[in-house]
Each structure stands twice: as C-alpha cells, then as structure tokens.
Design a binder for these strands. Sequence first.
DNA 1: AAACTGATTTAGACTACCCTAAATCTGATT
DNA 2: AATCAGATTTAGGGTAGTCTAAATCAGTTT
Lengths: 225, 225
Amino acid sequence: MKNTLTHASEDYLKAIYALSANGAAANTTALAARLGVAPASVTGMLKRLAVTQPPLIVYRKHHGVTLTPAGERAALEIVRHHRLLETYLYRTLGYTWDEVHEEACRLEHVISEDFEERIAEALGHPVRDPHGEPIPTRELTMPPFEAVPLSKLRPGQRAVVQRVHADDPALLRHLQRLGLTPGVGLTVDAYDEFDHNLQIKIDAQADPLVLGTAITDKVFIEVIA
Amino acid sequence: MKNTLTHASEDYLKAIYALSANGAAANTTALAARLGVAPASVTGMLKRLAVTQPPLIVYRKHHGVTLTPAGERAALEIVRHHRLLETYLYRTLGYTWDEVHEEACRLEHVISEDFEERIAEALGHPVRDPHGEPIPTRELTMPPFEAVPLSKLRPGQRAVVQRVHADDPALLRHLQRLGLTPGVGLTVDAYDEFDHNLQIKIDAQADPLVLGTAITDKVFIEVIA
DNA sequence: AAACTGATTTAGACTACCCTAAATCTGATT
DNA sequence: AATCAGATTTAGGGTAGTCTAAATCAGTTT
Ligand SMILES: [Mn+2]
Ligand SMILES: [Mn+2]
Ligand SMILES: [Mn+2]
Ligand SMILES: [Mn+2]
C-alpha cells in the first residue's frame, strides 16, 4: 500500500479503470491503443502489476484484466489528482478546458497528498472537473454520475448537459464553439435512424444543430421530465 | 535544444550547475553525494551527457565536469522552474519555507513552459524565491546575487540577510526559530577565532545569538556601511 | 622515482520500460 | 472437428538508470 508506483504503472491503472468501468475486463489491445504503446508492452506491464504485493490487478492470460480493490484505490487516487488539477488549472491559472488535460496528466504523478489537499481546499472541495466529470472523494469513493449519452435521446426529449467525456483538445474546442458544455439545456428535434444523427436545439441559441455519434456518444446528459 | 531531457539528467545538470558555480569543475564524488547516488552512477551519466547533440557538459576523465552553454541553459531552465514553484507554493498555497523544496523538486521536471509563464505572471514576475535565492529570468540569465556569507563578518559590522542557501527542512525550521530570515538586520558582536563562532544581535531581538559555521556559511548577507 | 591513498572509472549485473517479429491461443465459422 | 482471423503472448533486443566490487588513475609523500 505504501510502495511507490511508477508513472507508467499509474497510467496503466488509470487506463484499466477507465476501460473496465462497466464491470467487464479490459483487454490488451484497447489498453495498448489508449496508452499509445504496443500490445506486447501491455502484456509485459500486466504481468508486473499482477505480482506486486498486494496485487493491483487480476490478470488472466488471453482473458483481460480487472483491478483488485488495491488497484482500484490506486487508480482513483490518480483520477482524483488528475481532476483536481484540471479544476485548479482551469479556475486558478486561466487554462481553457482543452488545455488542462495534458498538463494534469503529467502533474498527477508527482504531486504530494499535501498538495492534493491544499488545492482541494483552495477550490472549496469541488465535486466536478471542468468537463463535468466527477472527482473522487478524499476517501477515494467515486460519486455517482450520469450514464446516459446524448445519443440515447429521441425527439421531444429535453435534457441538461452534465459531463463531456473527452480529452482531445480539438474535440473540446469544437464542443465549446457549438455551445455544448455542462449546464446547457437542450431539446431533441429529430433523429435519423440510419446515420444516427441527432438534430438538437440548444436553449438560447437561434439555430438547431445536427450532430453525429462521434459527438453525441461523448456528451452525457440528465433527462428533464 | 528541443530534445527532451529525462528527470534524472535535469537533476544532474542542476547539481553540476550548483557545484561549478564558482567557475571550477564539479567532481564526481561531490555530485554523487549531492544526488544521493553511487559515484559509479555519476560517471555513467556524465558519459551520456557529454555525447548528446549538442553536448551539455565538458567531461574530462578524472578531472571533473563543467557545463557547456547549452548545458547551462538547461540547468537554468530547471532552476527557474524550481524557484518559481517554491515561490508559488509559498505565496499561493500556504506552504512554509521548509516544505517548498521537496515538492518543487518533483514538479520542476514536468511543468510546461506555459505553466511556468502563468505562475510567473500570477506572482508578478518575482525576482527571489522564499529563501531569498535569485530566480533566473525568462531569458535564462541569472540575476546577480550576494556572495558574502555571514561567516565572513567580524565584530562591529552591520548587515542585512539576503538569502539562505539551504534545502534541509530541519535547518530551515531552525533558522526560522532563530529569526534569521531574508530582510532581517543584524550586528556582529563577537568572533571566536578558534571555533569560528559568531555572536550576533538581530535587530528587534533582545538576546544575542552565538552561531557556528554550519549556519553562518549558509546565510548570505549584504554589509551595511 | 617508487609507493601510497583517495578519487574515479570500469566491469558486470539488475529493474523498468519500450519495441518488432514470431509464435500461439481463442472464439467463431465452416 | 478442423480451420481461420484476430487478439495476445513470447522471444529477443534496446535505452536509461541504478548498484557493488574490482581495477586504475593522479597527486602527494616518502
Ligand atoms: Mn499521466
Ligand atoms: Mn491523493
Ligand atoms: Mn528535481
Ligand atoms: Mn521554463
């Protein structure tokens, strides 16, 4: 528990956490893609993470990987660092929401628990990061969060944007230009069942938008009535 | 110039900069002691730093090492990061002057030039860190600084403390308790030529202090008249 | 000028990553 | 039940950094 993890291990744990969020095991190829390394490198790291004391993952060859309770705590620790840092960079240092990810992804591995606590305090213990993603508590529990993507809505439904599940700066800038940010209310006007495009009308915007699933799968909403 | 250095290389360059500040070459043993590694490890790293393109150091076997202009720029870059971070942690996040070093020593290697510029701006482009040490400019020139240690003073002389050249938290807390911090005025009352102790009287303090060279060598002052 | 001593380098080994190319496994299809 | 395709692991190799133990060097002393 007190043995110090490397930056690389921490990024692997974070990726496993993200890819096994739905309870299923994360697989080698998806991890390799997300981490930007070769599949063989992933296999090597999984072997190492499985034999630490205590083990951080359960790894069954050819059948994917899940986090142990210790591994999940380690992952949530890094996610908390990451999202607190994003929030701090955004609110205190004037970063834009497309700039925060890259800086936070490096800082998250080197800040102390003291630093974590001080920025949490300075920010008033925030519950969401600038993208609306929930910040794990100090006790490392993940708050409940919206699981309904905009893509699931159908004409006539109203919703409020809660979180945007994206790191890519270009996509984030695009969403910003569209006005599709947390807190925004919208109504679905039309749905195309062949290309799955959704036509929506954002509150206080004159013109409707037509959005593909590349966007609507990443925007999570809360349905209103 | 754009090739990215490892954290370890950066710490070596910073150490070489510190140990060759007086123009002389830094030697293997001193580097090993300061970096907390074996002398053989230093030799290995020096060989690597000497053959980078461009070379960062001039290394002559058995005769020590100096920084090339490129190496000095790299070192000053890290020193600027370190001291700006110390200043930021101290002023903005409420760290004490004995807590800042350790955190800054990890952060200095991962912050972006953008982060550097933003905290410099937020702090009003400070010229000194919390210990009074000069912060290299954005253009990577080192401002002039006091080279006279308190230990050089003799009875009758008056001085103002300018900087404290120390990282050790215990020593820093001790100096704080003594009231020996940048900006403080003092007068030398007595000098013992055998043990080199100095008796000083700090302005606005009732009782005089007797200090050994472990302290007086680390406190740099400006002589007044 | 040889010997000594402490500093330094070399030799050899280890861990943590990463890679490419070549096996091998799994689950689906015939 | 054999085959096939794609996913995965293994094999083998590389870099960066660390260590200990064994040379070796340089400057000083005899
Ligand atoms: Mn990261
Ligand atoms: Mn933490
Ligand atoms: Mn450092
Ligand atoms: Mn910089």
